[in-house]
């Protein structure tokens, strides 16, 4: 009986896993990028201009204090890490890290402002 329960649970988890991954990916619409070289408002303007050229870009946040650029990807659209990396390199900056999160940009703004 114990073996049967474990088997049913395993099958159930295996079936649920793809849906869980899809849900996370769909929710991870914020791309947080660590950037070196951010020192002035011209950096902000240049980066904004480059990243907003993508139709998938919904919003952009640049924090000089945290060396961070965050892109909110529009629902139903996709924007690859390499596209973002290339845009930032083409704007003249060095990318140190890229990670995808589910944190909305508005929430990230508030969080960064408190730090």
């Amino acid at each position: 009986m114990r073996t049967l329960t474990a088997l049913i649970l395993s099958v159930a988890l295996a079936c649920a896993a793809p849906f869980a991954t899809a849900s996370t990916a769909a929710g991870a619409r914020t791309v947080e990028v660590g950037v070196n070289g951010l020192v002035c408002s011209f950096c902000v303007q240049g980066i904004n201009k480059q990243l907003r050229k993508f139709p998938a870009t919904q919003d952009v946040l640049v924090s000089l204090e945290h060396g961070l650029v965050a892109v909110q990807v529009a629902a139903g659209k996709s924007l690859g890490d390499e596209q973002i990396r290339k845009a930032l390199v083409d704007a003249g900056y060095t990318v140190t890290s890229i990670q995808r999160t589910t944190t909305p940009l508005a929430e990230l703004r508030v969080r960064l402002a408190k730090k």
């Binding site: 070196n36 070289g37 020192v39 950096c43 060396g67 003249g92």
Partner: peptide, 12 residues
Amino acid sequence: GLAKRWNLPRAQ
């Protein structure tokens, strides 16, 4: 022309 740029963690 920009001949060279050095991007540092909190400097340029």
